[in-house]
Amino acid sequence: MEYVLIIISAIFVNNVILAKFLGVCPFFGVSKKVETALGMGGAVVFVMTIATIVTYLIQKYILDKFGIQYMQTITFILIIASLVQLVEIILKKMSPSLYQALGIFLPLITTNCAVLGVAILAVSTDGFGLMESTVYAIASAIGFGLALTIFAGIREQLDMMDVPEGMKGVPIAFVTAGILALAFMGFSGIA
């Protein structure tokens, strides 16, 4: 499989949030400011890439080898949970300001279904080797960050708009996301 195809498909055509509905909770939770959206996007790129590499190796060399594929869900979620803990400790030391900005959402990456979802998709897609899985994970995470940042930019503008009373807050955010998803559907012509 060609890497370019994987990258374009994962970022635009099959965007994790807007086409696959993975990671919708942080999509609405941390998208009020562009700055936090970028931070969250960066954290997800880091966690998702490492998580996919580690889970891929575990799947191939432990779960498949001993025929215990039914342990997949439990194993993967534990790996991701410990990785998130690691990122949290590193970030606390290296960049306290970013750590403060991301606040409670960093531990929530554990329950970010995008990370587990991409890890499972990578091992279950036929023809994906370690290299393809890694590229796929990075591209998916970039797609996540991209959608999150665009959405945060729109929401910053939305704050200044005159929104009808009943649509204020969450409802208008959902409709906006729907229109954004509509725009991303235009990319499906490429693939």
Partner: peptide
Amino acid sequence: LVFVLAPGAFIALGYLIAILNK
């Protein structure tokens, strides 16, 4: 068809929440 596809999900839920708020 758009309501079965991804964008419709967001839009439908947005309006449902708006109605429920009301």
